[in-house]
Design a protein around this nucleic acid. Structure first.
Length: 558
RNA sequence: GCGCCCGUAGCUCAGCUGGAUAGAGCAACGGACUUCUAAUCCGUAGGUCGCAGGUUCAAAUCCUGCCGGGCGUACCA
């Protein structure tokens, strides 16, 4: 919040300097307000003088001395703002800002007034965004890979909500197709097996125990009534229903709820798939060859054209994907976020070519391709195979580590990085586990307020608190980190990067634990105690908001 | 071969719209509990930011090439 204020003042000064002819327009919006790395370089710094000098040289050939420019900027800032204790020009032309203590202290009332809303913004109010994630076909329980995607997608959705977006969470699935047929056949085989009848298990069938469970429930409800059934449909449907129920249960355990389940099948039933082909054909982007229908993706710079309808008459996955994305556009979203595993990399360019060909603006779609998860146990990688059902399911993971730990670990890394999920670390109820580190910070803060209440030393009214007593360096650091939180939420939301919140929460917790060990909150000096209690309360609010934003709990005791 | 991602401390990773002396956690070592929860804190040690060029006042960050790892590269999804 302070940082964006400085940026605002800086922008004003830039424009004033522009009017006064001090510099040209070349550097507009290129400079930045940054966090200096070292003590003594102020609370914030800006590179504006160097940027102006640099751009000026490039644009007009005019040579400017960055330090002189810095002096001009400082002169303008002095007239416009009262935020600073002092400003210093340093190094090649940095301007270092030293913020007044009273400005930091004002963070407390700001946080306490906003409470749960601290860190939330309304700038995107009314904008609609669709977040598509998980989208696993109902052929089996969610694996840890899906788990990462589920948590990532949901947290991104929460972040977008926090900056004001109206968010729809959508799950796209296909219950037709070969995969599902094999699923049905696998179920039938297990069913016959349970009845003691001869059976043939499909070569590439699903071997997980969950198939046996589904078959058993069919035996329970239908006896041997299905033993001569030629059609695989009843088996398929039973399996689908049961698996979806499980998936739903798993997602619930992760505290994830979808607004909409979109069935690929409906695209066919409503003729939307055919319609896409017709539209592309009209534009001359489709041709027939070898009995198949091809989409001229080479027109969009791709290496080769792609088949969209096989010679068998069946569409490839690309076609409904394109139709689905066109529907997203038609539904009027301002932004569409797709979250896929990195194995979907090949489909993305084709779908983008498709929507572009149909006249939509592909820049409204952002695709996050997250890398894979490897599970580590006892220092060894846990090998997983979907077919052989040796994968670890999200449910098993949750049984072992719980929702908070699972969510936190899945969010610790940026999507681009492969994620190593260390079960040994995750199951540790103590010490090194970073989840407890953050939550313990919250619990401690809540505990301080409790103890104060019991001792009859509660914090009283905020109006009466002498916040100016909060002058310790540790207190300043905490105030500064709290002030940075809203900016961070914005950044994380627009970058679709929840891991930034994770890191910030760890930093907040570290600052607090350190403070806690060095200073006593409740003491003989009543005024100081009250001020510190308010500091703690506002920090508790920030930690609470951050944990909730990530879909975790903020415990009062541990 | 081609496309995308990754390569930073012993391990796992932040930092990458270029900024001033490279960060965290874990592991290692040494300390701190009669005091608001020690699931904590303090300190020590640990680095050619994969390699080589280039752009720049300034490169872990941008560009090019190479090396290593992952994922794709289907008339599978």
């Amino acid at each position: 919040m302070i940082k964006s204020l400085i940026k605002k003042y800086l922008d004003e000064c830039f424009l004033q300097g522009l009017e006064q002819g001090l510099w040209s327009d070349a550097a507009r919006e290129v400079y930045a307000v940054e966090d200096p790395k070292f003590e003594g370089q102020g609370d914030y710094a800006t590179n504006i003088a160097m940027v102006i000098a640099g751009k000026e040289k490039k644009a007009t050939g005019k040579k400017m001395n960055p330090r002189q420019v810095a002096e001009q900027v400082v002169g303008l800032l002095e007239k416009n703002t009262t935020l600073f204790d002092k400003m210093e020009i340093a190094g090649p032309g940095f301007i270092n800002f030293f913020i007044k203590e009273s400005v930091w202290q004002s963070v407390i009332p700001a946080v306490c007034a906003a409470k749960d809303a601290f860190g939330r913004a309304s700038e995107k109010n009314g904008k609609r965004v669709l977040v598509e994630f998980v989208s696993a076909n109902p052929t089996g329980p969610l694996s840890v890979g899906h788990g990462r995607q589920a948590v990532l997608g949901d947290s991104i959705a929460r972040l977008l909500e926090a900056v004001g977006y109206d968010v729809d969470r959508e799950y796209y699935y296909n219950d037709a197709g070969r995969q599902m047929r094999v699923l049905g056949e696998s179920t039938r085989a297990r069913y016959l097996e349970l009845l003691g009848l001869p059976f043939e298990f499909p070569e590439d069938g699903y071997q997980g125990d969950y198939i046996r469970d589904i078959a058993q429930s069919l035996v329970d409800t239908s006896g041997d009534g299905l033993k001569d059934e030629e059609d695989v449909t009843p088996f398929k449907e039973a399996a689908e229903k049961s698996i979806f129920k499980d998936i739903d249960g798993t997602l619930n355990r992760l505290d994830i709820r979808f607004d909409n389940y979109y069935n690929e099948h409906s695209l066919y039933e409503n003729g939307l798939v055919d319609d896409v082909v017709a539209s592309l054909r009209e534009k001359g982007l489709v041709y027939e060859q070898d009995g198949a229908v091809w989409f001229k993706t080479t027109e969009f710079g791709h290496e080769k054209d792609r088949v969209i309808i096989k010679s068998s008459g069946e569409p490839t996955y690309r076609l409904p994907d394109i139709a689905y994305h066109r529907e997203k556009f038609k539904r009027g979203y301002d932004w569409m976020v797709d979250i896929f595993g990195s194995d979907h990399i090949a489909t993305v360019p084709d779908v983008m070519a498709g929507v572009t060909a149909l006249g939509y603006d592909q820049s409204k779609v952002t695709v996050i391709l997250h890398q894979f998860v490897t599970l580590m146990r006892d220092g060894q990688q846990v090998k997983m195979s979907t077919r052989k059902a040796t994968f670890i399911t999200v449910d098993e993971l949750l049984d072992e580590v719980g929702t908070d730990v699972a969510r936190f670990f899945f969010l610790m890394r940026k999507a681009d990085s492969q994620l190593e999920f260390d079960l040994d670390l995750a199951t540790k109820q103590s010490q090194e586990n970073p989840v407890y580190y953050v939550q313990y910070g919250h619990a401690r803060l809540a505990g301080i307020a409790r103890t104060a209440g019991e001792k009859g030393a509660d914090r009283g009214a905020l109006d009466g608190a002498s916040l100016s007593l909060l002058v310790e360096p540790e207190e300043q650091h905490i105030l500064k980190a709290m002030a940075a939180y809203p900016t961070l939420v914005q950044e994380a939301a627009l970058d679709l990067a929840p891991h930034k919140i994770v890191y910030h929460l760890q930093e907040l917790a570290a600052l607090f634990h350190s403070y806690y060990n060095k200073h006593r909150v409740i003491g003989d000096d009543k005024d100081l105690s009250r001020a510190r209690l308010w500091l703690c309360e506002s920090l508790r609010i920030v930690l609470h908001n951050g944990l909730i934003l990530l879909g975790m709990s903020a415990p009062d005791t541990m």
